[in-house]
């Protein structure tokens, strides 16, 4: 399944929201993932389920170059292979124990996941900088209706707020929800950034209202 707005790439999170040595949950059209960044800075995307007992890996923890499950501490390298089973410290885990991985790219402060093995690169943001991500209980149509404009081929919905133009990179999620990444000019001042954040909140309220009323 491809996102209507951004091709085979889904923008799942901002780089700034995934510091070194942490793991976060993310949603994609093909299921939930655990997105994590190792100590050396590399980003990986795993299916959000430990093959041992089904625990969500996004609840786990990162040490060095491996992601560990919070339940039993099983650790996985960036390639998805299990490297440690604490209950059996002397055992080298068999190759068969591995987590499904997803293709991930990072650029312009956004982390992207590919729906399948993609040869293309994710779109660029051309001087825009991501500000924050927020989830809306509204589909893209409702967001477009709230903004009064359609999404560009690159998946960006723009709207005017006073003298500022605010752009939103929108990815649709299941259950008529959407993930909105708010973008501002790279040189926007702190007051402009705060204004953009508040404008995005207001737009989300409007889009959710439209969604509830079924106006879109």
């Amino acid at each position: 399944m491809k996102s209507r707005t951004t091709g085979s790439w889904t923008p799942v999170a901002l780089s700034a929201d995934l510091p070194v040595g942490t793991v976060i949950p993310a949603r994609t059209p093909t299921g939930p993932i655990a997105l994590w960044r190792s100590q050396s800075g590399g980003v990986s995307a795993f299916a959000d389920r430990c093959p041992h007992r089904g625990m969500r890996l996004s609840h786990g923890f990162v040490r060095g170059e491996a992601l560990s499950c919070i339940y039993h501490g099983w650790s996985y390298a960036q390639a998805g292979n299990c490297v440690r089973i604490p209950a059996h410290p002397g055992l080298t885990p068999p190759e068969a124990i591995r987590v499904a991985t997803r293709q991930v790219e990072e650029g312009d402060g956004i982390i992207w996941i590919a729906a399948d093995q993609s040869a293309t690169r994710p779109p660029r943001l051309d001087g825009l900088a991501p500000l924050r991500s927020l989830t809306a209980c509204a589909g893209i149509a409702a967001i477009e209706a709230a903004a009064g404009t359609d999404a560009s081929p690159g998946g960006i919905v723009g709207f005017a707020n006073n003298s500022q133009t605010i752009r939103m990179l929108v990815a649709s999620l299941e259950d008529e929800q959407a993930l909105i990444h708010v973008l501002v000019e790279g040189d926007a001042s702190p007051p402009e950034r705060i204004a953009a954040s508040r404008a995005a909140e207001a737009l989300r309220r409007m889009a959710e209202h439209i969604q509830r009323k079924g106006i879109a």
Partner: peptide, 14 residues
Amino acid sequence: HRLHDLKPEPLPET
């Protein structure tokens, strides 16, 4: 839960 990542990986004790 404890933030286990704040502690280094312990040496295995077998």
